[in-house]
Structures are given as C-alpha cells and as structure tokens.
Design a binder for these strands. Structure first.
Lengths: 134, 134
DNA sequence: CGGAATCCTATTTGATACTG
DNA sequence: CAGTATCAAATAGGATTCCG
C-alpha cells in the first residue's frame, strides 16, 4: 500500500539498533545465551528434538499449543543460531527432519542445571506467601 | 486506570491466559528459569548486584543504556521473583540498596555455565560464514 | 506435507517530564 | 535520591488463509 509501513522508523535506525544489540551480546555471553533460548517455545522444541530427529508434523503434535507459524519461526531462528539442522527429503509427501547440532547438545547440559535451578525457584516461590502467586 | 483498556479482550481471557502460563512453567522448570532472566537487562543487573549491595543510582551509572523506568520495572520483577531484596534506609537523601538473595546466588553458578556456553556460541557463530552475522 | 503471507493482539522497552 | 506517569515504539506470538 504505502512505502513506509506502519511507523516512520528508518531502516538506518533499525540497522544501527541491530548492531547495538550485537555489540551488547559480544560483551555479555550470558545475554547471548539467553537470547537464544528466549523464544517462548524454544526450550520445549529443543527438548523434543533432543529425543531424536523430529519431523515438523511430529513436533506440532507434541506441542499442540504452538501455532504453525510460530513453530516455523522458532525453528528457523534455532537453525540460524546453529542449534538445529534442517534436512529436506525429496519424497512424495515432502518430509523435513530437524535434529540437534553438537552446539545444541552442549547447551542441553546447561539446560539440566537450569532445570534444577528452576525447580528450586518454583519451590521457594510456592512457599513464600507474600509474593505474587500468579 | 480504567477497567476495560483499549482492546476488547475480556479480563477472563487474560486471567485464563495467566493461569495457562503459570501451568506451563510448572510443567517446565527450564522455561520458568528462562522467564526469570528474560528481561533484556536482568543478567547485567544481577551481575552488578553480585559485586555487592548496590544503590539505584549506582546501577544507573553502571548501566547507562537502561532507562530509569526500565530499571525500576526490572528491579521490581526481580524482587517479586525472590532474586533480590530491596532495603530502604530512612536517611536524609533517601537511600535504597538492592542485594542478592541466596536463590539468586545459586543462579549465579548456573549463569557461569551459561556464560561459557554463550562464548562457545558466539565463537561458532562468528566462524560459520553462511549464518546471519547480525 | 511443510510451510509463507497477512493481519492482529499482547508484552516489553524506551523517552520525556514530573514528584515526594 | 529514587523513583512515578504518560506516551510511543519495538518485539513476540497467534489466527487465518493460501501455496508448491
């Protein structure tokens, strides 16, 4: 319709913002790691693929809360981040398989620690009465 | 301020959505942990406070990219999540100090692992030429 | 089957100005 | 000093429809 989409933000500003974020990540690997896992479904998706190579449709069945669009986006991002590989088989009903890279496998070990901490966090939060119980 | 904001989303829907998220967290401690660290500045903020009790103004100086509003919001959320304590001293120029709880200290150990992985991730990403270099 | 395109809502963050 | 209020922008995710 119109050449400048919704807002008037120029491409240069967006570009410099991307560089800015990139710079922040270089200075803070923790933030970089968190950004990789930040998508709401990425831990679950990685968890599923960790069980073995998974097809798109299998994952949709395993995670029915995730819409097709979101699933695709998250998979693409994980792929761009080097955590999963995407293999297309030239078969009649087309078939695509995702699997973890070694980089993602090393992340799995950290996720185990993260899970242990998460359990402690959930326990303590459930005990403290003055906090927001959600 | 007003009970029905801008859009027509009913409070019941929002409420059920909150419960839904809460349920997801209970089923996935990893997600719960990531959500706690999900704010863009929270790792940096925790890092600062890990150096010792910090005042609001000290943290604003240490992290000048973070606006006052955002700093306040992130601190409040960390407090609500039981990661930091907020102590107000009744002095003449008012003084507020934040410090880590034991829960946050245990998270620091996980963050060390996360940092190590983040460094590997950044290295591998810098080497692969076909990925988005940002 | 495995998506892409479009549109829409919700959440997060930032900028600016003001306050106890 | 340590915020709060208000407004605006950016980001993330979902719903629906269409495509090779």
């Amino acid at each position: 319709m119109n050449e400048s989409p919704v807002s008037g933000t120029s491409p240069e500003v967006l570009e410099s913002h991307r560089k800015y974020i990139g710079q922040l990540e270089k200075e803070c690997p923790v933030r970089a790691a968190i950004n990789v896992l930040r998508g709401r479904w990425k831990p679950s998706i990685l968890c599923e693929i960790a069980k073995g190579p998974q097809r798109y449709s299998e994952m949709r069945k395993a995670l029915p809360q995730v819409s097709a669009q979101t699933m695709t986006v998250q998979l693409r991002e994980l792929e761009a981040d080097g955590l999963i590989t995407r293999e297309v088989y030239a078969e009649v009903p087309s078939r695509v398989e995702y699997q973890l890279t070694p980089l993602a496998e090393s992340l799995s070990e950290v996720m185990v620690e993260l899970e242990a901490w998460g359990e402690r966090y959930l326990t303590e939060r459930a005990q403290s009465p003055s906090e927001k119980p959600d």
